[in-house]
């Protein structure tokens, strides 16, 4: 579950960064920008059927928090 999520996360933002883990504060990544944010939101919709609005997404900080959001809103 976690490994798959990390892979999808990296694919969505076109990153090959091996340091990305569930604890990564993704907003601090060099590759993070507004396109990356939209890409993650789109990936959550496509892969997990989760529609999250920009303001809610803004509050999430780590990959774990995103995954928690997914399980809470499934």
């Amino acid at each position: 579950m976690e490994q798959k999520f990390i892979t999808l996360f990296k694919e969505a933002i076109d990153s090959e960064n091996d340091q990305i883990s569930m604890d990564t504060r993704f907003r601090e990544l060099d590759e993070w920008d507004s396109l990356a944010a939209l890409s993650i939101i789109a990936m959550l919709d496509e892969e997990y059927d989760i529609i999250i609005d920009g303001n809610k997404f803004q509050k999430l900080e780590t990959l774990s928090e995103i995954l928690n959001y997914i399980s809470e809103n499934k």
């Binding site: 507004s34 609005d53 920009g54 303001n55 803004q58």
Partner: peptide, 8 residues
């Protein structure tokens, strides 16, 4: 414009 978050 709700598709754009408050910070943006």
């Amino acid at each position: 414009t709700k598709v754009i978050n408050d910070k943006e």
